[in-house]
Amino acid sequence: MKLIALLSVALIVNSAPAISANNPAIIQSFPYVSPVYVGLLTTIPSLFLVIGVFLTSLIENRIGKKYTIITGLIIVGIFGTLPAWYQGSFFILFLSRCLLGLGIGLFNRLLIQMISSLYQKDTRNKAKALGLESACEGLGGIIMTISVGQLIKINWSISFIVYGFAIVSLIFVAIFIPNQRLNLVNTEEIDTQVSVSKERRTKSILLGFILFCIVLLFINYNLQITPLLIERSIGNATNGSNMIAAIAAGAFIAGNLFGVTYMYLKRWLLPIAAFIAGISIFLTNLSSSIIFILICSLILGFAFRNIMPYFMHTFTTGGEEVAKFGTTVVLVAYNLGATLAPYASQAISFFSSNTSASNQIIITGLLLCCIGFITLIFNKYMTV
């Protein structure tokens, strides 16, 4: 029941991109606001998630892990739904997205760390549990993105009500998760703590940079897929929302299979998944079929959600302190990449002298393929 309660929280972790299909409608509602800032509504939660990650230890020391998670869920429930009942100011809308990220950040590291600690001495089950966590992130993305896609037909603002799901997770945590404080760990936990060596820190940061680049490109696809469909007159915002849902569906499948996938591929998983992700993005631009693009999005989600738990599993093996440091590196790399994705889009447009969504998709796919080849060549360094 502890694992189920933690997995219910995981359903919310990947919820920020769910409203990306709203961007065209929000641009129309706030014509005086730069489209770059509207794009940041999807990614700015990731920056504040990083801030929340660093605040977690301070709050955890005072109120314990359980109530830190509950605090984060309350913030998500209140400020995530704020745009549904107040839309008069873009500043308030932007602020609500910042606080949404902060709330998720308060429980994101604890969520992964607590799931990892349940199976720290059982590598295989640990990989399965982290895969399930990733699967639930994908499932949450599916549910919220599809819900947003349907609610946007009524009004873009009402779609933000999906963040009210945080209350359901709060109930599960309140009932099934015991409270723990850092100064009340038992002897067995103390024995399993291992200090993080300088070599491991350096290597973790370098691998974190690779993850940062992958996420930067992955989120850029999320931002460009709806404009691509509209640009080529083959779909609308609802279709774009369905593409994001397909990514989440692929992520859900990958998470459920991760334990088996990792067992067979191990360190080869990263380059293979990065290359498949790049190819699936590149192929998106070659077809005018909604079904084909939907399949490409599904494959992209499958590939990407093998990459994330790969890093989580690699970085959290070795005790409490190692898991804490590794989780922090992964979350910072992921969320900085997600936050800066709109600026990556601008950089691609600047250097290619082409602002079309089609151009963005082609270059994003090729760059991911390049990362796949680089990680293949330096494969023996892809673990810590």
Rank of each mutant, 00 (worst) to 15 (best):
M1F: 15
A16Y: 11
A21T: 07
N22Y: 05
V38D: 04
G64C: 14
Y67S: 03
I69G: 01
I74Q: 14
A84K: 04
F90S: 03
C98W: 04
L102K: 08
G103K: 06
F107T: 12
Y119M: 03
K121I: 06
T123D: 13
L130G: 07
L132G: 12
S134T: 15
G141L: 09
M144K: 00
I146L: 09
Q150S: 13
W156T: 00
S157G: 01
S159L: 01
A166L: 05
V168Y: 01
V168F: 00
P178R: 08
V185D: 01
V185T: 11
T187P: 01
E188W: 03
T192K: 05
Q193F: 06
K198S: 13
K198N: 08
T202N: 12
G208K: 11
T226N: 02
P227M: 00
L228Q: 09
E231H: 04
A237G: 02
G240C: 04
F252N: 06
A254K: 10
N256A: 10
L257R: 04
G259V: 11
Y262D: 15
Y264D: 06
R267F: 13
I272T: 13
I272L: 15
A273Q: 07
A273W: 07
F275E: 02
F275T: 06
A277W: 13
F282W: 15
T284F: 08
N285P: 03
L286Y: 13
S287D: 06
I290L: 14
L294D: 12
S297W: 00
R305C: 12
M308E: 13
E320F: 13
V322Y: 06
G326M: 05
T328N: 05
T328M: 09
G337E: 01
F351G: 02
S353C: 04
S356F: 10
S358W: 04
I371D: 04
T375F: 10
V384N: 10
